[in-house]
Design a protein around this nucleic acid. Structure first.
Lengths: 222, 222
DNA sequence: AGTCGCGTTTTGACAACTCAAAATATAGAA
DNA sequence: TTCTATATTTTGAGTTGTCAAAACGCGACT
């Protein structure tokens, strides 16, 4: 029995929650409910059903975690999502800021045939337009461990490789400031009191952004 | 309130049933139920709901008809379906025999933004890979009145313009026999006793097909 | 230890969609 | 006109996914 869109969304949210979490603790119900956009009680009901299907491990009053079967399924949803985003940007010519919503819908209905065709057209890309890694067809995800603009050394040339936020306004801002994946820059200063990070782009522009934003821009030393 | 996939499917089936029908009679429930793939009682329930929403006109024990609002909505679903098919064939390089199933799913989730982008990429095509006309964004459908291989004059060069069947096997057969839209041929004979039609393709091959099949291949004199 | 607060679970209900099978209407034959 | 065959509608029930609000568990603070 193939999983419904609803199930796919719960698994995906769980995957996101798990990977954006240092410890290996269970994801609390409240967080999952918020991520999926349902009332807390709804998440509890759904998670119990998922546990019965063997897709998650559930500890009442503590939280949930993907089982290996659930993790694989989540990876396949993510694969579809990210290949679709890459396709919409590379082939259809849409903006990286606007593809997320479309991919969010399409990921639940594209056939394997079509998704593999897209993958081939794109030359089997490793990452999507935001730098997020694209899982393989067997559900393996590369888990790269990047620095962010918040954690990297100062005064060193770095290259943006990934942006962990899908908000269209934020993405448009980054695009305008030449902070899309591939562009290089260096961090000039951090001010924890002012909650800000000061950057200089390769074009020489100076930009100051908040630490929240800085933590979402991942880089590698170039 | 935007219509669900289910509603869209009922409207689409109704549109198909209405246009493949000489008279302007109402579509009987049984036919609609079969087309949508549900039990008769389910269709009755759904149609009453559609009537309450003003999308159809319903006469108990007689049948249903699309209202103008329903017809427009149906046309927009058809527009999405057919643009997607054209896109999958022209841009993605899929076979015309296999795009129907994918389009069937995608038609309910593509955004207006994406569908108009596809339309532009394709140069605002008038017909899809099967020759079916693509409705305009405001819900207008060209209703061309073709002859079929069953009704056209004998011994005259004609060009295939449209195929009114989505069965993958049938489409593959037509492709192999050079009977896709665009190819020309002539009808050599019809035999009502044998229930068959004899054709000669432009390549000189002679083919005999049944009248059921012949009625699904629409042509124009060339 | 007692109890307060917060997150979680339970409960009861609802909306959308579906089916099987019983009840019913309609048209056509006798 | 009456009967009958067939299509349609009604009924009762089930599935999936959702919510609001009441009940509950658990750790923290006094």
């Amino acid at each position: 029995m193939l999983p419904s869109s609803t199930v796919e969304n719960y698994l995906k949210a769980l995957h996101q929650a798990e990977t954006s979490r240092e410890d290996k603790a269970l994801v609390p119900m409240g967080q999952l409910a918020t991520a999926v956009g349902v009332a807390p009680g709804t998440a509890t009901t759904m998670v119990k059903a998922l546990a019965d299907s063997g897709l998650v491990e559930y500890e009442p009053y503590v939280g949930v975690r993907l089982s290996s079967a659930g993790a694989k399924l989540a990876a396949l949803v993510l694969r579809r999502h990210r290949l679709i985003e890459q396709f919409l940007v590379e082939i259809v010519g849409m903006s990286w800021a606007e593809v997320h919503e479309d991919a969010e819908q399409l990921e639940h209905v594209v056939s394997d045939r079509l998704i593999e065709r897209m993958d081939a057209m794109l030359g089997h890309p490793a990452v999507d337009p935001h730098g997020d890694p694209i899982p393989t067809p067997d559900g393996t995800v590369a888990a790269p461990d990047y620095h962010s603009l918040l954690t990297c050394p100062l005064h060193i040339a770095v290259t943006v490789t990934r942006v962990t936020d899908q908000d269209a306004n934020f993405l448009r801002f980054l695009e305008k400031q030449d902070l899309k994946p591939g562009h290089s820059l260096e961090v000039e200063a951090r001010d924890s009191a002012a909650d800000s990070v000061q950057l200089r782009t390769s074009a020489g522009h100076q930009i100051t952004i908040g630490t929240q934003a800085a933590s979402k821009v991942l880089i590698e030393v170039s």
